[in-house]
Design a protein around this nucleic acid. Structure first.
Lengths: 215, 215
DNA sequence: TTATATTTGTACTGATTGGTAAATAAATAA
DNA sequence: TTATTTATTTACCAATCAGTACAAATATAA
């Protein structure tokens, strides 16, 4: 293919597609699927419930998203890029301490937001499951690992910048923050209020390593 | 019934039961069921898997324990009275701080014990689920609430004994400890090692309220 | 018009879910 | 022996699971 033809093809020509048009908005449907998976988990969400929530028939779901597993993965990607995107942006705070504080405080609002399911989809999506869901379970474990890696990197940066002492074990600190975050997710699904979650964050941040640290 | 007759009846006369004897040990079978529920959760454990693990046929299970829900509840009771009993005994430590430290350090050994599933059954038994398991989900939430109440009472005692300052919010402190505990359970099922869990406990205990507390 | 492409709704598939009916086996009581 | 009681085995139940075959519907292209 010539460079000209290639550039021409890359130009978005709004040619109408050939067959019968989709009667639903894929993005909105995925949002509804996300909501169902988020609140009931991968196994707890049945295709029957999903079809009803999406308002479209099963063959349309399978044509648009593949199978249940693929639908979950696409919903999860939307979750990470959308409502859970604050996790990444919080890392841009000027200090590691502020990054963690922002992260956890935004997590509080996120977990207690009544317009969405309470808790984190990556934590409760498939914490335990049957044999048929092991792949999804492992994927979520990997995502939680990525979360810790993100924190670790931010703490390493803080070391270079002199905010954290060289002796601080950044991986351990990251694991501790992740643990509090995951515990808060459990608390949120169990009915903890915004105020209760805030108090947890305040308590958790008291163990932040400082030069004045006693022990 | 006369008092004599009553006392006679209360004496354990080892009369052999009438029909065909049980061919399995109920207690051992319940232990195996506990193991399956503990590792796969309530929904993730199928009756097919349970029958295979217990080594007895389904009608025998139903005759001995009722239905799946009843079997889960009996396994849960065995879990609480058995492997998870350290939670209650840890409260008997001389100070609240020692009680929490003992609790969390024993939880580390408990969660990382390779002879049992990793993590806490009360946390991961039914964190999310379908409509048919809502009753179990709510029961586990209630058990987690009891856990916090136990901690709160211990902290109230510590206040009376002068260990904790009067201004300490015992409920918040209990919720924080419970949150760390639940987060550690998530970490354990995700593959965290004993050493990693210990480091989390050390970090978490740094926020313990003391008179020297800075903020 | 006719042909082609794509989506939709209905109705279905085989496998698995929790749960059980009924016959057989193994014990005690009479 | 015979009757009675209880447990085990086999084979099954209806409901639900994820997933699909197929024909009708709806669009563009020729």
């Amino acid at each position: 293919m010539s460079a000209v033809a290639k550039s021409q093809k890359s130009v978005k020509i709004p040619t109408k597609p050939r067959g019968r048009p989709l009667e639903f908005n894929q993005d909105e449907a995925l949002d509804k699927a996300l909501h169902v998976f988020w609140s009931h988990g991968y196994e707890g969400a049945s295709m029957a419930e999903l079809t009803e929530a999406l308002g479209i028939n099963k063959p349309s779901i399978y044509a648009a998203f593949g199978n249940k597993e693929a639908l979950f993965r696409k919903a999860l990607a939307k979750y990470i890029a959308g409502p859970a995107a604050f996790v990444g942006t919080a890392m841009n705070e000027p200090t590691a301490h502020q990054a963690v504080e922002t992260l956890l405080m935004q997590a509080v609002d996120f977990f207690s937001d009544e317009s969405t399911p309470n808790g984190c989809m990556i934590v409760q999506g498939a914490l335990t499951c049957g044999q048929s869901s092991l792949a999804i379970q492992q994927e979520l474990i990997a995502y939680r690992g990525n979360f810790e890696d993100t924190l670790t990197k931010r703490f390493e940066l803080a070391k270079v910048q002199g905010e954290l002492a060289a002796k601080v074990n950044t991986k351990q600190l990251a694991k501790y923050i992740a643990t509090v975050h995951q515990g808060m997710s459990v608390q949120a699904t169990s009915g903890a209020t915004r105020e209760e979650l805030i108090a947890i964050v305040v308590m958790a941040l008291k163990s932040w390593p400082t030069t004045q640290q006693i022990a």
